[in-house]
Amino acid sequence: MTINEKQDQIIEEFSAFDDWMDKYSFLIELGNELNVLEEQHRTDQNLIDGCQSKVWLHAELKDGKIEIQGDSDAIIVKGIVALLLRVLSGHTPDEILNTELYFIDKIGLKEHLSPTRSNGLVAMVKQIRAYALAFKVKQG
């Protein structure tokens, strides 16, 4: 599936919720289901600045594709991390660098994320793009 197909799929899934409570319950569920970040990757280097809660993102390049792992100490944020990974992990640096992320807005989360929180979200996306750029440069 392309990144955009995944985004559209998530938007579709979220459209089933008409109540914000259900939406957040779903995010909490996603957070709980997220694969654990391997302990050796829970480093200060992988820690994202600009969030009220801690967020770690670790990326590796495998067969030309970026595999991302992540975690947060706040469960709702972890749910958002899970969504980001679902959309972006497993894609090439170019694919990641060339797509517009529109699903956060469309599922009605961004508008409810206060500046400090959305800064966190912006910081996460920025970090993933930075990883992608670094891998792209390394690949030559």
């Binding site: 914000w20 469960i75 709702i76």
Partner: peptide, 13 residues
Amino acid sequence: TAHPFDVGTLLDK
């Protein structure tokens, strides 16, 4: 053990 951020986010809603 909930992170204060989670509690605050839901209270905000």
